[in-house]
Simulated scan of single mutants.
Amino acid sequence: MKTLLSLLFLVAAASAQTPHVTPPPVGFSRVVTLWPNGAPGAHGTADGDVPKLYVYPAKANPTGTAVIVMPGGGYTALVTEKEGGVEARWLSEHGVTAFVLQYRLGPEYEFPAPMLDGARAVRWVRSQAASLGINPGKVGVWGFSAGGHLAGYMASIHDGGDASAQDPIDRLGDRPDFAILSYGRLSMDKGFTPEPVMPGLLGAHATQMQIDAISPVLHVTKDNSPSFIYSTTADQKVNSRNATAFYDVLQQTGIPVELHIFELGVHGTGMGQGIKDAAEVSVFPILLQHWMQLHGWMGE
């Protein structure tokens, strides 16, 4: 019996370390591996070890804008279609070249692996600006839930690139030119959410220093990306005070920012279409379209 239990434990442990296999979104034209020779810190070459971008070229009237969509899933899974493919196809239809990012996930990969993947995605898109027909100064990010946290982190913490890097992609900056944040956790204030802080990203026993390091609201500077923030009061997983806290700091710092908080809509509304008992959120795409048009990131 002891031997059987030992074997079962070993099987369970091995299963826990098996990299995720994430179903791709629908309708992409091609897929790009962000590090062809292996991502930094990668444990292997399975699907979950390989961060990648699914590409959606602008279909008509290209604006020169690119947006990297980052799905949610608590840093342990990726909702690649509802919070990835749907948005990428919408962007493509509106003249924006779009990408869906498959970033690495916990528990196999914790902080900072997803952040490295997001930064690499921005640098890669900029490096391919000419071939993609985009403006390297019009590269935005759009994140949902955990992806919204990732987008908020990238909007706040970034660099201008390493001029001495051997890889020319790493010489480019990773600051998003704008960020769209959909129901993401943007403050690690335990008064907002009493549960453990992002265990998929930090593990179950994070120190306060580690928690503060991933809290976008604590890292806002005058170099933050202009942001469009969306949340709902009825969200039972990510308190809408995350949105207001980030908005307040951006507004006080002088960063262009727009905030929309709807009364209805539980966590995971995506683009807000067809939400039962929360029809009001269906106007979300129009609000976002107008904001992007205001800044020249989307055509009329």
Rank of each mutant, 00 (worst) to 15 (best):
M1Y: 07
L5Q: 13
L10G: 01
L10D: 00
Q17V: 06
Q17H: 09
T18W: 09
H20D: 13
P25F: 02
G27Y: 04
G27N: 05
V32D: 15
T33Q: 12
L34F: 11
W35V: 11
P36I: 06
N37C: 04
A39H: 10
A39C: 11
P40Y: 03
P40W: 02
G41K: 11
G41N: 08
G41F: 08
G41S: 09
A42K: 06
H43T: 12
H43W: 03
D47P: 00
L53I: 09
V55G: 01
Y56N: 00
Y56D: 01
A58Q: 12
K59I: 07
N61L: 09
P62L: 07
G64A: 11
T65Q: 10
T65L: 12
A66L: 05
M70F: 12
G72M: 00
G72H: 00
G74D: 10
T76A: 13
G84R: 09
G84M: 10
G85K: 08
S92R: 01
H94V: 03
A98V: 13
A98F: 14
F99I: 02
R104L: 14
L105F: 14
A113L: 12
L116M: 10
G118K: 08
G118M: 12
V122C: 09
V122I: 15
R123Y: 07
W124D: 12
W124N: 10
V125W: 11
Q128R: 15
S131R: 14
G133R: 15
G133I: 15
N135D: 15
N135W: 04
N135S: 13
V139D: 09
V139S: 07
G140Q: 05
V141Y: 01
W142E: 04
G143H: 14
G147Q: 06
G148I: 09
H149T: 12
L150K: 13
A151I: 06
Y153H: 12
I157D: 01
D162Q: 01
S164P: 00
P168T: 02
D170R: 02
L172M: 06
L172A: 05
L172G: 06
D174A: 08
R175Y: 05
D177H: 14
D177G: 10
A179T: 03
I180Q: 04
L181D: 04
S182P: 00
S182K: 03
G184E: 07
R185D: 10
S187A: 11
P194F: 01
H205R: 06
H205W: 02
H205F: 09
M209I: 06
Q210T: 04
V217Y: 10
L218H: 13
H219A: 02
V220C: 07
T221C: 10
K222A: 15
N224R: 06
I229M: 09
Y230N: 00
Y230D: 00
S231W: 11
T233S: 03
A234I: 01
D235P: 00
D235L: 02
T244S: 13
L250K: 08
L250R: 08
T253I: 01
V257Q: 03
L259E: 02
F262L: 03
L264A: 14
G265D: 14
T269V: 15
G270P: 10
M271Q: 12
Q273Y: 00
G274P: 02
I275E: 04
I275N: 04
D277L: 08
A279D: 14
A279F: 02
V283L: 14
F284P: 01
I286A: 14
H290K: 15
E300S: 15
